[in-house]
Design a protein around this nucleic acid. Structure first.
Lengths: 70, 70
DNA sequence: CAAAAATGTAATATATACTTGACAAAAATT
DNA sequence: AATTTTTGTCAAGTATATATTACATTTTTG
């Protein structure tokens, strides 16, 4: 189900906790967790916000999901 | 409110109608129209599907929305 | 190793993405 | 210029992204 390890890694690089990222991005901790877990199909606005905070591009963090996630 | 002219352009390059793109992507024509109109905050999965059909990257079609869209 | 912090996960509730149907206006076709 | 196709938009409904509360487990820290 496509765990998003790229977010986890980028977060680690900045030494940010899931909660810190969630707060920075204006979303609940559970939502951030679910996104990293690959259980979510977030909106583009949220993806953009995450990219902005983590200093990555959309393609870097959310590119090519080949599998059939929900 | 940030009309997405990039999608419109990419669509024109392929000589696709809004309906054709909507069908190819598995979404209603109204939804595609609203996205081009900038009234929507689509999910990343839909964005990926649009990119795939139009042969563009996420960054190309959905990068940097600076303005305060909804 | 114990305590604290961070993470994974579930249930219920709410906001909003997306659908369907319908109609008007604009653009393209003949 | 008339007809058809495409686009823009609205209203009401359904599906799902996200919030909140809560608790168990894992990881980190003292």
């Amino acid at each position: 189900m496509a765990r998003n390890v790229k977010i986890k890694t980028a977060r680690a690089e900045l030494d940010m906790t899931q909660k810190a990222l969630a707060d920075a991005v204006g979303v609940s901790r559970q939502t951030m967790n679910a996104i990293e877990q690959g259980n979510y199909n977030p909106t583009i606005r949220l993806c953009r916000a995450i990219c902005k905070v983590l200093g990555k591009t959309l393609d870097e963090l959310f590119g090519e999901e080949n599998d059939d996630e929900r």
